[in-house]
């Protein structure tokens, strides 16, 4: 790791000020992806701004019929939250299978969304549930937030402060993990919302998380595992690597969709 300056922010404003003041600062929101990247010398921020001690950025509350989760809330806290388990059990289950227990104690929902790793789990939930990402400057719909692999709509000085999930009548997530890293090779989040059935896929797409129109259409007609069994995904849009071909990932998308739908029951 290259040398860096550590700052602990006391408020969102303080974090924004520190972020703006430094030459090439990054938000440290748990660091479970950022720190390994820095250790490999693939990232070299001049400064890191730790936001995990900002009280306003932590905690889970019911809000307007949905759930508001502070950006610095850990995966373990989301997984264990009675509110999330009751209202969005699929989201709680997703959080409970990110990384491993130790990573879940440190990693945060805001950090995961802001990084938008194409194999991360949370982006699929945010997109499928139609979440709204709150920053220190504005609110961004998940639809507009994820702009490509490791790319988001965030400005350089912008900090994710909270995520708001609308309620869903049912939701579930099924992922097939990469055998080595345990990141998603294909993760499918299915949600029955007021706006209809929404399905988002992570891990498999060349441009990161995406909504799957074919699966959504099939489920709109019949919300059943059988309905998606015949839905295919164009392998040309999917990743291929030593762990599996694009065709294999396309198959996994269908299989995980079936399992997620079954888990919604």
């Amino acid at each position: 790791m290259y040398e860096t300056n550590y700052h602990r922010a006391t408020s969102v404003d303080d974090a924004a000020a520190k972020l703006g003041a430094a030459e090439d600062a990054k938000v440290l929101s748990g660091g479970q992806t950022l720190l390994p990247t820095m250790k490999q010398r693939l990232a070299a921020p001049s400064d890191v701004i730790d936001v995990t001690h900002i009280a306003d950025m932590k905690g889970i509350t019911e809000s307007g019929g949905g759930i508001r989760i502070g950006a610095a809330t850990t995966h373990a806290e989301v997984a264990g939250s009675e509110i999330v388990k009751r209202m969005l059990p699929g989201l709680a289950a997703l959080a409970g299978h990110i990384g491993d227990p130790h990573v879940r104690h440190m990693g945060t929902i805001g950090g995961s969304l802001a990084n938008n790793d194409p194999a991360a789990d949370y982006p699929s939930a945010a997109l499928a549930l139609g979440a709204t990402i709150h920053t220190n400057a504005r609110q961004i719909s998940a639809e507009d937030f994820f702009t490509g692999m490791f790319e988001t709509a965030l400005d350089e000085s912008e900090i994710v402060t909270a995520v708001e999930f609308p309620k869903a009548s049912a939701c579930a997530y099924a992922k097939y993990p990469n055998p080595a890293s345990r990141y998603a090779m294909a993760g499918v989040f299915v949600a029955r919302t007021d706006g209809g059935v929404r399905v988002a896929v992570t891990g498999a797409g060349q441009n990161g998380v995406f909504r799957h129109a074919g699966l959504e259409d099939a489920l709109a007609q019949s919300f059943s595992a059988d309905a998606v069994a015949g839905v295919t995904t164009d392998p040309d849009q999917l990743l291929a690597d030593i762990h599996g071909s694009a065709e294999y990932r396309a198959n996994l998308v269908t299989v995980m969709a079936k399992r997620a739908v079954a888990a919604c029951a």
């Binding site: 550590y6 730790d50 130790h102 104690h105 440190m106």
Partner: peptide, 11 residues
């Protein structure tokens, strides 16, 4: 439990 290789001492 945390991974102490993925946490800065300052954290």
């Amino acid at each position: 439990a945390v991974k102490s290789c993925t946490m800065l001492a300052a954290q």
